[in-house]
Design a binder for these strands. Sequence first.
RNA 1: GUGGUUGUAGCUCAGUUGGUUAGAGCAUCAGAUUGUGGUUCUGAGGGUCGCCGGUUCGAACCCGGUCAUCCACCCCA
Length: 457
Amino acid sequence: MAKPTVSLPQGTRDFGPDTVRKRQYIFSTIRSVFELYGFQPLETPAMENLETLMGKYGEEGDKLIFKILNNGVDNKNKEQLFRDGFEKILQGKNTKDITERALRYDLTIPFARYVAMNQGQLSFPFKRYQIQPVWRADKPQRGRYREFYQCDADVVGSTSLLNEVELTILYAETFKRLGVPVEIKLNNRKILAALAEVCGGVEKMIDITVAIDKLDKIGIEKVEGELEQRGLDADQIATIRKYLQVTGSNEERIGQIKALLGSTTSGAAGISELEFILGYFDQLDRPPVAVDFTLARGLNYYTGTIFEVKALGANMGSIGGGGRYDDLTGLFGVPGIPGVGISFGVDRIYDVMDELNLFPPDVQVGSQALFFNLGDAEGRKAFSLLQHLRNAGVRAELFHENTKFDKQFKYAEKKNIPFVIIIGSKELAENNCVIKDLRTGEQKSVSLDELVNFSFL
RNA sequence: GUGGUUGUAGCUCAGUUGGUUAGAGCAUCAGAUUGUGGUUCUGAGGGUCGCCGGUUCGAACCCGGUCAUCCACCCCA
């Protein structure tokens, strides 16, 4: 057998039948909760104009955007144009002469682009969900792929904090249905801004958040070292230390942060927003939320509440994230449309569920029943019964050839088909069949008229 | 982008200081077994040792490069 030399681009994967079924289970669970909460579906193209994406994800993000080479760069008439363009690329600049399109990096920016383009037609608040792949030129590693799915739900055209409440509960409900134990972390950019304000000015905010975000990974001393490196003085670092030492229940944490930053305008605003959201949960089944003031999140368009979901008991980064943005569409010339949204990382959710063995066993069941093929006349009878069952909505198939039991059993076992239906010469004569449940080994004789009423579950 | 790990049969992995024809388990296929599988036994097929080059009388093994993988960093879902 010649060994195939074909391969896949780095960081991409094929999904076999079993994997697709398990992924579909996650997708359909998320989709049905999205629909339940009143979100409407949207799809956008895999590629966007490069300028739509550039500059929206920070300097690091720009590097991770997959760019598409223009067609026709071998056109001799334009050779000089392309040579000049290539020179610019070598200097780290982009030029439309070489590349003007790119694969989408997330679903939020394309959505903002869509809203900006269609604001006249949309009725606000507009609630949309979107389930599509995105691409990032990251170096692959655990839980990181170059092609992966995001499932986003966003509400635009409303500043109401009720949206945050709903999205939090939507997170909780979805992970409850999937059986994934999670912690939903909440913070507010205004609180981070307040911290920056009292520690050297708002322009230091990114430096500060990047450093404190690493707290649980590198420890408080290294965070302080990093802050020092980024130009903060001892007083400021002392304040941040106090900020990072906030502990206890959600209420206790808020109390401590109030003492620290409650006197600033943005600090007070952020705190009251958080309190509003948390207050709503008192009258409900409390979702697993945890206020975490070290949560920062990289995307710099967030302005208010920020979310992040961590799977409990699994070695995996965040499996979901989101936040509020005041003016995303402003980037596309349509100011004044605020929004808030969340995202599910399906590929990571899959990895967690696989690791923790959380997929229900019946997810893998394709066909519910297999008719054994035991001869020409038997096979013909089985085929007509097969069609009856299919018309009644039972997923079923007939073994493709008359062969020994051993093979037919093994086929059923391998395809995880729970029931086999045996019609041999004896059953043909008696007008009945044997139905065997392979999971329990039990079998019984059923008349052919009754077969269609049998419960294949 | 930086650093490291690994790459031998479909899968998981052995393979001595470099030495004849590269092995095992599982899986597959065939038979023992003509209508009740999963156990057991027997047998068979399946490898350019990731790829390219170098050192050597001789390379799966040493060296260089390259590709892929996994892991960590950066960043992120």
